[in-house]
Nucleic acid binder design. Structure first.
Lengths: 212, 212
DNA sequence: CTGACCTTTCAGTCTTTTCTGAAAACAGGA
DNA sequence: TCCTGTTTTCAGAAAAGACTGAAAGGTCAG
């Protein structure tokens, strides 16, 4: 195996264990990612020096994350595995799965706890803290769900903009009829164009809600 | 201890282990978060039923993540620990630390590997894949660094906008002089106002680079 | 300097997770 | 049907990680 691939795979293994995933699984994934062609389980086992059964477990785990897909190659009875070809697809899947496994259960617990009647002042305070966390997590995940639905091209444009996004927000706030409730818009002095009115309408779906 | 707090702490422990962090550490953090006042290590140990030394280790870990801060209360020699009061601060710290521990080392490995001369066609292909991953990670982290620098208020506005952000991007693209190179702007038919020109200038720092 | 009070360290134990080889299960061809 | 090549399961071995108590190290008041 190429020393390039080897170094990459080794690193991914380390990182994997710093994350929730175990070393083996990380390495299998890295191998599939770099090799760029579907591999059968026994080749993976040989390349990485793991037992065949270990690879089987690892692939099962990766499949449960939807990070590898199974396919059959003509003339070969063995199952072959590969990573999605589009790297943005990988990002989307990762985000979705992590949300499903880590965020959703937490939100659900928080909601349950917030439904309980506080028995005393202390519990009221605790619920306050939990509410704050709940709202924050919900805001972040809603946003990420929304953004993930964008076309890749739109997404990259947004990302390349970086901190420059703030100028767009300022623009939005400066347009009358569009400003958020927090910063009341100052009315433009001059008469305005029809074109701009239409845009205004378009923006009115802003999700802003009551202040916490 | 309130059953509310207890359920929350227990859940956080579980989640912690699904993440890189261990159960103990997760529970200590959760306890500090809900109690909303600085606690000394021995109270934590008692509340959670861990040994004093275990708590000491856990707090050390949390401090290394900058997720708890140490303080002295007047009239008490013991060290007390608490979480940052502002929940947005917590988000920022978490993002920074994860970047520092997980992303930066990976980028560094990728860069090293990309500097190596490919020995054959295979290695060239591998480097192609690595480059793709490197660019993606860099784009995402640059963006998150930028966005993290925003004021909390700006940040929440951005988040609340959700998928609506796309309309702002469309607006940007529709303004002549501002459009991305990808979608050449169609010139407005009518004469335009000075106001809009100024805005245009403001947007020109867009980070767009050459197409991959 | 001493004693009271706190915190940290660490060797050893206990628990959990990972990994393996052997066996079972499965799928398709003859 | 049986045979062959394949994947999955699983009990136990091995490794990694978490946790503890005891001891050492700090710090401060008097």
């Amino acid at each position: 195996m190429s020393p390039l691939a080897d170094a990459f795979i080794r690193h991914f293994g380390e990182m994997g264990s710093r994350w929730g995933i175990n070393r083996t699984v990380g390495q299998i994934y890295a191998l599939l990612y770099v090799s760029g062609r579907p591999l059968p389980a026994d080749e993976i086992a040989e390349a990485l020096g793991f037992s065949r059964s270990n690879v089987s477990m690892g692939l099962k785990e990766l499949q449960s994350w939807r990070l590898v897909k199974l396919q059959h190659l003509s003339g070969d009875r063995r199952e072959h595995f590969s990573t999605p070809e589009d790297i943005w697809q990988i990002v989307r899947i990762l985000a979705e799965e992590r949300r499903r496994r880590e965020i959703d259960p937490t939100l659900s617990v928080l909601r349950d706890l917030l439904l309980m009647k506080p028995g005393n002042e202390d519990e009221r305070a605790i619920q306050g803290r939990l509410q704050e966390m709940h709202d924050l997590i919900e805001l972040l995940t809603r946003w990420s769900e929304d953004v993930q639905r964008l076309e890749t091209q739109q997404l990259t444009q947004l990302l390349r903009l970086g901190g420059g996004i703030i100028r767009l927000l300022d623009l939005k706030n400066s347009l009358p009829l569009l400003g958020s409730k927090r910063r009341p818009p100052r009315r433009a002095p001059a008469a305005r164009e029809a074109d701009e009115e239409d845009l205004a309408e378009d923006f009115s779906e802003d999700r802003s809600e009551a202040e916490p």
